[in-house]
């Protein structure tokens, strides 16, 4: 298996606040990896570090065999995209929002049009392209942001609570798209989720964060049946007190 990311002794603090400590992890090309853990533990921070939106306080982040500290940031960032927990929407039409990543890559107009329409269709927003994005409902906005993140076919997709605002039918739809993107395009997908059931349905491997540390990384099967760490067991079974 080819390594997409290697994280070495990474820690991250905001001021005096230590959020992540001593993280070591490899993430492989084409896998679906999920970070789980209680609210405020640092899942979003982890994804932001991988997307180079934050810099590690100490430690290294290796992308495709190269240290990201010395790589041209934009070259790395343009190969991935992140769906934020609370997506920001450009104050323009749905079409322009989704087309954005293609427009800045100077894709030709015809191709953009086709890709945007296909992406809208995929997330169940067909026909909404002319609507002003700020008038979308919460769930529609979430799906639009999802379409915007995937439309340029990034090598790495970072999903922060991708279905938090959605109803069960749309949750199923998005999960199916995530699986399909991975199987058809071989995209590496890294997600953050509190939703144990969702992780169980779509992840290959899981990392459990607790008190700033990655206490266990394991295959989904292992984690949900025989976790190494008693605290993982407690978290998964909702016994964790926080």
């Amino acid at each position: 298996m080819k390594e997409m990311f290697r994280i070495e002794n990474l820690s991250k603090s905001f001021g005096n606040k230590k959020v992540l400590q001593n993280i070591n992890l490899k993430i492989f090309t084409g896998e679906i990896f999920a970070f789980m853990g209680p609210s405020g533990v640092g899942k979003t921070t982890m994804l932001r570090l991988l997307n180079l939106l934050e810099m590690p306080t100490t430690g290294k982040l290796i992308f495709n065999g190269n240290d990201t500290a010395i790589l041209q940031k934009n070259n790395v960032m343009s190969r991935m995209s992140m769906l934020f927990q609370r997506p920001a929407i450009f104050n323009t039409s749905v079409f322009n929002n989704i087309a954005y990543s293609l427009v800045i890559r100077r894709v030709d107009k015809k191709t953009i049009e086709k890709k945007v329409i296909d992406a809208l269709d995929l997330v169940g927003l067909a026909g909404c392209e002319k609507q002003k994005s700020l008038t979308l409902s919460g769930g529609e906005a979430q799906r639009m942001a999802f379409a915007r993140a995937i439309v340029f076919k990034p090598d790495v997709l970072l999903l922060d609570e991708p279905t938090a605002n959605l109803d069960p039918a749309n949750v199923a739809k998005i999960e199916e798209i995530i699986r399909k993107i991975r199987s058809e395009l071989g995209t590496t997908i890294i997600m953050a989720s509190h939703n144990i059931h969702q992780v169980r349905r779509i992840a290959d491997r899981v990392g459990i964060l607790l008190n700033g540390e990655l206490i266990e990384v394991n295959s989904k099967e292992q984690i949900f049946t025989h976790p190494f760490d008693a605290r993982s067991y407690a978290f998964i079974n909702g016994e964790f007190i926080y």
Partner: peptide, 17 residues
């Protein structure tokens, strides 16, 4: 919002974008 600018970066945009 700062998140708008971060959205540009995460979608592959440069500082100019």
């Amino acid at each position: 919002p700062k998140l708008i600018i971060e959205t540009v970066y995460t979608l592959g945009g440069t500082e100019k974008d």
